[in-house]
């Protein structure tokens, strides 16, 4: 399956329940963002199910060339999403792995059809909020200037481009200043950051400079890998900009 950035997915009816796939990075490093994501969904009157058996989409091994190991972990997820409900993921990268790469990963396996079925139900969180739930938010927070970091996989694998910014623009007291190079990778790239630390450092350095130039107080993103990379670099450089996941930011602004 080739994904060339032309993805757009058909609408579905508003479901009564959804699954939440938290992702392993959120689980360990950003659980508050995960909780915020679930609460945003619940606030829309949707029942949220968080299967306790879930762990990871398999992407770390897949991208490192260990496909059998990735398959093993991906396969372990299939049992926990039996209902026909959408699976909402607070990360474009993990959503992309499930929805675009699982069909390849399971190709020729006995459970290929089942994996494809699960994959077809995967939604990136902001995409789901905008396209399916058609949410409207009322801003309760003080005035603030922010910028948005678009994750590569949300943009190019899930076709999520305007949705998150549309959500942020609903917030009356939030001024969104776009990055000069919004579409450019921040240099995380999973194991890339440690395999090629110097190139990765140069990339995140450019990203940090771009963020600083906006004068924003916070950089909001929908992907925890990027967030860990960017906010780690912001902190190390003692920049007065905070990195925050969009779910958490939206929850802070709307639920007080």
């Amino acid at each position: 399956m080739s994904h060339d950035g032309t993805t757009s997915r058909p609408d579905i009816e508003r479901p009564e329940s959804v699954y939440f796939f938290g992702t392993c990075l959120v689980d360990l490093f950003y659980p508050d963002a995960g909780m915020a994501g679930m609460e945003l969904l619940k606030a829309q009157g949707v029942r949220v199910v968080f299967p306790q058996g879930q762990s990871c989409c398999g992407q770390p091994a897949y991208n490192s060339g260990y496909r059998e190991e990735a398959l093993k972990v991906a396969r372990a997820q299939l049992d926990y999403f039996p209902g026909d409900w959408p699976i909402v993921v607070p990360s474009g990268s993990c959503a992309g792995m499930m929805s675009k790469h699982w069909p390849d990963l399971f190709k020729g396996e006995p459970d290929e059809a089942r994996a494809r079925q699960v994959a077809s139900r995967v939604w990136e969180l902001t995409q789901f909020l905008v396209q399916v739930l058609k949410v409207t938010f009322e801003d309760q927070g003080p005035p603030v200037k922010i910028t948005w970091h678009a994750s590569c996989h949300a943009q190019r694998e899930m076709g999520v481009t305007d949705e998150p910014k549309a959500l942020l623009r609903q917030l009356a007291n939030v001024e969104l200043v776009e990055l000069q190079r919004e579409k450019e990778c921040c240099g995380f790239g999973g194991t890339f950051a440690v395999r090629h630390p110097e190139i990765s450092a140069a990339m995140v350095g450019d990203k940090v400079a771009d963020i600083e130039n906006t004068g924003a107080k916070a950089v909001v993103s929908g992907d925890c890998g990027c967030l860990m990379n960017i906010s780690g670099a912001l902190e190390a450089g003692q920049k007065p900009v905070r990195g925050v996941h969009i779910a958490q930011f939206l929850k802070e602004r709307t639920h007080g």
Binding site: F29, G34, V49, Q52, G232, A233
Partner: peptide, 23 residues
Amino acid sequence: VRTKPRFANRTLHALAREKGIPD
């Protein structure tokens, strides 16, 4: 060039259980 990633005190799994999110 980055600070160390910080592990949260409790995982999302644990928080979801505490908050009574159905599994």
